[in-house]
Amino acid sequence: MYAQMVDTGVKSLKHRSEMSADEQAFMARIDNESKIEPQDWMPDAYRKTLVRQISQHAHSEIIGMQPEGNWLTRAPTIKRKLQLAAKIQDECGHGQYLYSAAETLGVGRDQLLDQLHTGKAKYSSIFNYPTLNWADMGAVGWLVDGAAIVNQVVLQRTSYGPYSRAMIRICKEESFHQRQGYEILLTMMQKGTPAQKDMVQDAINRFWWPSLMMFGPNDDASTNSAQSLAWKIKRKSNDELRQMFIDQTVPQLEVLGCTAPDPDLQWNPETGHYDFGEIDWSEFFNVIKGNGPCNKQRLEKKVKAHENGTWVRDAAQAYATKQQAGAATKKEAS
């Protein structure tokens, strides 16, 4: 999931009888599966939670360009380079769709970027891990985009209209990301040298657990998660989504001829799901807090890119002002 641990500002779920008439009418619409649109009345906490979740999601897409950008100039063939460039451009586009959706809630894009640049806003923990070899491009596409797709497919039914529509658009585009990633790994496993095959297994070893952490903490005792589910901002719990991801990914892992770095991973015929080992939550919280391997580097690079783009924005503004002045003078003269 690209949004983890989104604070709803709510300590406990309200009973219907404690709600105002507006809130009751709002909840009736949610229960009815009608979408909430920008002009509709909504509880403040719902609005704030959406802004947090959508902007966190947007920031993740934007920061998510960096781990892949790292390999753009070193892609093994021109074909792979073009594919990777197209994928990175998509991530940027997805960030833009999501910022647009957040803006419909009355928050400015500059405000959101400021929150990212000052470290106030979070983005997904997964992008704070380094990409060390070419197989990482395959593992990121397959596992990281794969986990994001599981989450986003469900989010297409989220209760807020603009968020839902952004998700539908993103899901249409994202499937290519996962397939190209898997194809990179498959090619290396089927045609690669022993050293290249080792790279694939190494990439999977490093990205397996962080990918599972993308879905966020376990469900138990998470008021935020319960509130988001009640508002239908989220449609499935973290643990449900994680299980869906594991169940669909393990057979793909077997086709590759690789293994997961989890000795407890095995099919459970009774539950009809894969059992898996305990996630190292101390690592997750540490990365979220800013102490992952690349947190500092990612943020610095983002801020620098924004600053370096200042002259482009200034030039665009100056040109537009000049054009408008020219048009006004012409109009006066005629």
């Binding site: 586009g93 769709y97 894009r109 503004q317 537009a320």
Partner: peptide, 24 residues
């Protein structure tokens, strides 16, 4: 309707929209 873009003027809004909404 597919979404929205920020731009300095209509000309650059068209360019941004082309980049953002017609990649496929």
């Amino acid at each position: 309707h597919v979404g929205s873009v920020h731009a300095v003027d209509a000309t650059s809004a068209l360019e941004n929209a082309r980049e953002l909404y017609t990649r496929r």
